[in-house]
Simulated assay, not measured.
Amino acid sequence: MTPNIDVRSALQEGSQQPYSDLVTRRTGQLVRTVIEHRIADLADGSVAVLDFSHIGLLDRSCADEILSKLMLPLTADHPSKDGYLLLRGIAEHHLEIIEAVLEVHELALVVQLPNAEVRLVGAVTEKERHCWETVMRHGAALADAVAEEVGLACETCQEMLERLARRRLLRREADRFVPLGAVA
């Protein structure tokens, strides 16, 4: 199950105002609370898609309140929930702010731009990015195939892919690593 959560509707539900801009920490708290309620009953392993297509302005404090507080529990050493987030409809002007927030918290996310391009943003190394891109190109891949393509030792690549999976940037299915779903 992949729920699509329109962030603007979450904003309107939380604030009861017809806004489309995310500009204060308080607004971020309201939106995050609505999103948390919407994803609370998702089955483990579900991918929640947060759709930013109808969001205008996005300031750093609001992005921090929403994204870091949704992601940190998922990427903790002992997460209480096994879920994934994917951001859709991310405009170029949102990217700088989102990446700054993710970098501060050493987080990363998969985002889909309006043109359907999928990117890995946030705190990742170039080698991690290259491994992630290889899995994305193949749709699913074994660690040894990724290692061969990117020129890493198999054990090193396996560890890197495992880390990407723990950080909720790839899914692990048996011995393969796969993107976060059909939307990716």
Rank of each mutant, 00 (worst) to 15 (best):
G122H: 06
Y19F: 07
A147M: 10
E155A: 15
E103S: 02
E155N: 10
A116T: 13
R26Q: 12
V101Y: 00
C154Q: 14
V124T: 14
A100L: 09
C154R: 15
R137S: 14
E126A: 13
E148S: 14
A43H: 14
D41T: 12
A145Q: 12
H93Q: 10
I98L: 15
C131S: 15
P79S: 06
E117I: 09
L67C: 11
W132K: 05
T33P: 00
L30Y: 08
V124S: 11
L85K: 03
A147N: 05
D44K: 05
D64G: 09
V104M: 09
V150M: 06
E149C: 07
R26C: 01
Q112P: 04
I35F: 11
A143F: 04
L109P: 00
P79V: 00
Y19T: 03
L70A: 07
F52C: 01
I97A: 03
L95V: 04
D77V: 06
G28E: 05
M71H: 06
G151H: 11
T33Q: 13
D41Y: 11
H37A: 12
G89K: 03
T24Q: 03
N115D: 15
V47H: 06
R119H: 15
L102N: 01
V110A: 06
R119T: 04
L109S: 01
I90M: 12
A76C: 12
H105E: 10
L85W: 05
I98Q: 03
V31G: 00
V118P: 01
L70D: 07
H37P: 01
L102M: 09
T33D: 09
A141M: 13
H130F: 11
R88A: 07
Y84L: 10
C154N: 07
T125C: 05
L113D: 03
I97T: 13
H94I: 01
R137E: 14
L142Q: 13
L95C: 08
R119P: 03
R119D: 12
V23N: 13
D64H: 07
I55V: 12
K69P: 05
A40M: 05
L152T: 00
I39K: 05
T75N: 05
L58K: 04
A108H: 02
E92M: 09
R26G: 02
L120T: 08
V118C: 09
L57T: 13
L102D: 03
H37W: 06
V34A: 04
V34I: 11
K81E: 11
L70N: 04
A76Q: 15
E106H: 15
